[in-house]
């Protein structure tokens, strides 16, 4: 597999399954995530990944979720989500209209004889070594999810001892004219 660089449209993490990114602005209150997760569970919608954090305004949090639209039509998902009282705005982000990032941490087997190869790949991918053990390295890599896929794939051949990804976060791409490709599906 050839390593991709940032900005290339995402490969679907699971081939054959169609994913969409939803950026969901919610009230920053206890239990909001449960409401969303519960809604998806009881209506049979699949969440591929989920990232949540407060926004610039502490009253709100932004959830970036990658949803599987083969399980249910996207409009129905969005409309049901929109009925939750704590959900303020839902924006669908088409991959070509969004900047996406994800963080990966991986502990990979790296005995002294192959450690050099691993470190070389760390350099190629602009990754960082966080921790060095006797025969393993813990590495972090931030970037487009497809770049993380590629790196993870390469690390697999050395033996991954543990891997953790954050799930993607995304914001709409800015155009030079006006940020028109922001498509709020529901205006606050």
């Amino acid at each position: 597999m050839v390593a991709t660089t940032d900005g290339v449209p995402a490969n679907d993490p699971t081939p054959g399954v169609q994913h969409h990114i939803l950026s969901v602005l919610v009230e920053n209150r206890p239990g909001v995530l449960t409401r969303i997760a519960g809604l998806f569970a009881r209506r049979g919608y699949n969440i591929h990944s989920l990232a949540v954090a407060p926004t610039e305004d502490e009253r709100f949090s932004r959830i970036t979720m990658v949803v599987d639209v083969l399980s249910s039509p996207l409009p129905q998902m969005i409309l049901q989500l929109d009925k939750l009282v704590n959900v303020i705005e839902i924006t669908e982000l088409a991959p070509s209209e969004a900047v996406e990032r994800e963080l990966l941490m991986v502990t990979v087997s790296a005995t002294p004889d192959i450690r050099g190869q691993v470190i070389e790949l760390v350099g190629v991918f602009d990754a960082r070594i966080l921790n060095v053990g006797h025969d393993a390295l813990t590495i972090s890599l931030e970037g487009h999810p497809s770049k993380l896929d590629d790196f993870e794939q390469l690390m697999r051949s050395y033996g991954i001892l543990a891997v953790q990804r954050t799930g993607r976060v995304a914001l709409p791409k800015l155009t030079h004219a006006e940020s028109e490709d922001r498509r709020p599906l529901r205006s606050a």
């Binding site: 239990g31 449960t34 409401r35 519960g38 809604l39 009881r42 009282v85």
Partner: peptide
């Protein structure tokens, strides 16, 4: 109670 009733209430 709020956990149990979340799927059966409007809010």
């Amino acid at each position: 109670t709020t956990g149990i009733t979340q799927p059966v209430t409007k809010h």
